[in-house]
Design a binder for these strands. Structure first.
Lengths: 251, 251
DNA sequence: ATTTTTCATTTGTCTGACATTTAAAAGTCT
DNA sequence: AGACTTTTAAATGTCAGACAAATGAAAAAT
């Protein structure tokens, strides 16, 4: 870090010191003053720089570590280092956030479902163009799994997620994969509310096969159409489950 | 929290204690054992429960606070409470994450641009159906701003983001807004690399107007078409900037 | 030259203390 | 009794100092 840009905090602010310090360091990282793999000053040095105790500095650093902005290493020549945020880190963060967001805010099944399929349709055309044999093989394998009898609803849902994940990854755009896979995976708890009958699984497998075929044939329009039908069918399933529950609760 | 589900950590694990404790509490929140607005045990109680010192407990709590999973309040009847993750919190987290991801991983302009417009095209049809007069007014207002002479490139980009944000919000699906607005906003630093000439701004304003018109007329197909052209035009602009720089560097 | 030992540095954890904030309880006045 | 003030207890925020554990580098021994 260039010495010219000293990080400073405002002692008169009402905010907690560790929050301010974390924010100051975060700003330095976002602003490019601290670059990837650069070592931060040691905790003792940060104490002097910000004129606070070590506990306070440590709490600030833990806040940053929780966001994968830094990593720490013990021992001589150890310390805190600016962490290169990987797609994997970002992805797992997004899954957690999205999952909690959906479960804590009573997002309706319809809303989440609509978002999920809208996003998927966005990358289906790209996937139809770029998919590799690997992506196709994954999709086909998941279809086979979904056809097995005796599969639990959870396992069926998990396979569904894997199928759609392969579809998204087929677009070969890491940014899209990161954004969409999070949304799809976060929806899984909601999807688990649905009980899949043998009949409905058959229908879903048929639609998945149509999607895979379309992707294989580089037919974006067909993929889009199948996805739309899958969207509608999923909503129908949900409505049936809801109606069945309502009838049961009434009796 | 029901007493049956005691949170436990493994003293033999190599992981830091504060990480383990944070994970245990996080799991309890995700698993629904701790519900929104529920109060966690006080720091002293957590010390006893996990058999660690207060510093360690505090570092764990700061990790959770950094992810907006809990909030803390001082004073009697204060403590740490499970936080309801708001769309706003999730949104700002996503912007930070996406921004860092793009800047730290050398994501190409083309990749980010493709992802951005693919996502936008996903919600344009919904926006064409559901947009309110408010959304339209925002879009028109931003178009007016973009037409002003003497606007800096940064201001032009910011207005561009606001325009597209309104387009996304028009879909009236908070999940989509949260996902996409983050992606669009995170792209702004990349977009700022482009220098917009008067001519190119004019072209963009024209396309924006076409999009707004299509949304106003509930014409999803026209909106999609205009967005596609905007995608292509943006990439053209980028190529021109790159070519100009290459030529300058050679001379 | 290679291996072992020592050592200094840095983060992780513990202990104890005090400051600050806050709501509730106790007290006081009308 | 009711409204206002004061006190108190509980909780988080901050500080200070200590030791443990890890780790790389230097020093020493072979």
């Amino acid at each position: 870090m260039k010495n010219g840009a000293e990080m400073k905090i405002d002692p008169n602010s009402s905010a907690d010191l560790s929050v301010q310090i974390a924010q100051a360091i975060k700003d330095a990282i976002i602003g490019g003053e601290l670059i990837v793999d650069e070592r931060l000053p040691s905790e003792t040095e940060l104490c002097e720089q910000f004129q606070v105790s070590r506990s306070t500095v440590r709490e600030a650093l833990k806040r940053l570590a929780a966001q994968s902005l830094i990593r720490t290493q013990r021992g001589a020549s150890g310390g805190a280092f600016v962490n290169r945020l990987s797609f994997e880190d970002a992805y797992s963060q997004q899954v957690t956030t999205s999952t909690l967001l959906l479960s804590m805010n009573a997002v309706s099944f319809d809303t989440a479902c609509e978002a999920r399929f809208a996003l998927e349709r966005a990358c289906a055309p790209l996937s139809a163009t770029r998919r590799t044999p690997d992506h196709l093989a994954t999709m086909r394998a998941e279809i086979v799994r979904q056809s097995q009898l005796g599969l639990t609803d959870e396992a069926f849902c998990a396979s569904d997620v894997a199928f759609h994940r392969a579809l998204v990854d087929g677009a070969s755009n890491p940014v899209l994969s990161y954004q969409l896979a999070g949304a799809v995976e976060a929806m899984q708890p909601l999807m688990n509310m649905i009980t899949f009958t043998a009949r409905s699984r058959e229908e879903i497998v048929t639609l998945h096969t149509r999607i895979a075929d379309a992707i294989e044939n580089n037919d974006a329009a067909a993929a889009d159409e199948a996805l739309q039908e899958l969207t509608a069918y999923t909503l129908t399933l949900k409505d049936n489950v809801m109606a069945a529950r309502a009838a049961r609760d009434k009796s």
